[in-house]
Design a protein around this nucleic acid. Sequence first.
RNA 1: UGCCCGAUGGUGUAAUUGGCAACACGUCUGAUUCUGGAUCAGAAGAGUCCAGGUUCGAGCCCUGGUCGGGCAACCA
Length: 559
Amino acid sequence: MEAVENSSRSLNFIESIIEEDLKNNKNEGRVHFRFPPEPNGYLHIGHAKSICLNFGLAEKYHGKCNLRFDDTNPAKEDVEYVDAIKEDIKWLGFQWVDEPHYASDYFDQLYKWAIKLIQDGKAYVDEQPQEEISQQRGVPTRPGIESPHRNRPIEENLALFEKMKNGEVADGSMVLRAKVDMSSPNMHMRDPIMYRVLHAEHHRTGNKWNIYPIYDFAHGQSDYIEGITHSLCTLEFEIHRPLYDWYLNQIADGDYRPRQIEFARLNLSYTVMSKRKLLELVEKNMVTGWDDPRMPTISGLRRRGYTPESIRNFADRIGIAKRDNVIDVGLLEYSVREHLNQIAPRVFGVLDPVKLIITNYPKNKVEELELINNPEDPEGGSRMIPFTREVYIERNDFMEEPPKKFFRLGPGREVRLKGAYIVKCMDYKKDENGKITEIYCTYDPETKSGGNAQRKVKGTLHWVSAEHAIDAEVRLYDRLFTDEDPAGHKDKDFKEFINPDSLKILKHCKLEPSLKGVKPGDKFQFQRLGYFCVDNDSQPDHMVFNRTVPLRDSWKKKK
RNA sequence: UGCCCGAUGGUGUAAUUGGCAACACGUCUGAUUCUGGAUCAGAAGAGUCCAGGUUCGAGCCCUGGUCGGGCAACCA
């Protein structure tokens, strides 16, 4: 039934192009994609969209998808990021064909092509200062003017480029430029830079090179070398496409050309989605790292308790198009809840405990009660949990003067302790500050769960036996920013919108004893509260849980 | 005042030879429930940026506007 739904779903514009190409037997019916991250930061949910698109398309059309690191700028790149990126892609459940590729694998070939362009009179060395070059380029509304070095002899260009390559000239003192069109309305065609001098150590090629190609002179060629058929990228590269095609036409033989297609990047409400800004949050210690559970990074979402399935479903739901979009973060949350509802075992955890004493329950009695692990999962089984005279319940499940619609505990009111008995509140105690310290109830032995009690009550509470409870730390996360579009204000820095309450740490929460021995990454539903997972910081004697997402709460909404 | 791209319920996405706008999330009802969860049933909400044109018929085609985004790193 899933398959039917899948196959009958309408195509996005990229799929339409692919199916058209397939119909025309373009590229002999081959489809080959690539995901081309620059290893200068961690992947975020926006990259996940692209990963799901590229690898997903490869699966759907029985093609291939490469992983290619776009590592042409050693000044910003690092192996740390290479490793993290690979891990994130694998975690999402995708596998690239062969070994990962690197743009740096093609430096030799790129260099040869640069020579060819020079020999063809299509490229020249320009040793003007950067400011000069940028000034001559003009502005979008006015044409630029040509460099005085534009028409220097080929031999001279060759000699100069050789010097650049050999490290004989200083950083920034010379560039190799393509001879395209200084009067083009497209700024990228105004004799774009192909190579710059950079005496930097590259994480893969070491000190072999003193010159490094610019993105535009590397990306299309890399696609070409790898036999990519559809090169998908985000909208801001649209204007680069004529240059992408121009370079390819200078170097390619035959008919085959990779085709660049642009789609709109993902924007999520209440967060930022640029590596630069995320890096800033990390470097200024406004979060604990790239994998801080509040970060929209894949590693952050993973630590937060998101599952690969939920992210892939999310990516599916948001679709692919060319118009700018802002996805409600609520849709992401919906996607995790949907999956976790299926797979997460239910447990009892009391975050803000207050003691409830059942005055008519025997003092040393312990009853082992059986609870279903997950009503949504028939295979989920059940577990035993101890019930005793003193239990903890959630502080906000009791009110001294409850309103009519409050289905929980209050003086004289009855509720069911889930899986146990119906209890009635007879009395309660407060300290000098008016804080409730103890609640006294009686229980009705006839109402044991699973029995044939007729009586029904409106409210059901979760609880934990005081004597058996495990103490734990629980971290509650909220959105990182208070503004829907923190980066969208011209006059204000996005950091001004950081939510001061994005992390709340709760100590001494009380968890049911079955949670002993959980491992980082384990996921649960704390009943009536939300989905939680064990954090990497968790220790056997000091458990730490992250709240992935709260349950939907129609009571809270009503208030 | 150049070039490129876009415009469909609150948010996304769809409507595939032009046939009176669909799906998901969200919202609101009601049912059900030992999770105020989940589930189930139903409702409201756009006449497709505007104005012309072609056509029996236009969200889809044409013309002209408007609005939004992008482009002037030796970043990607």
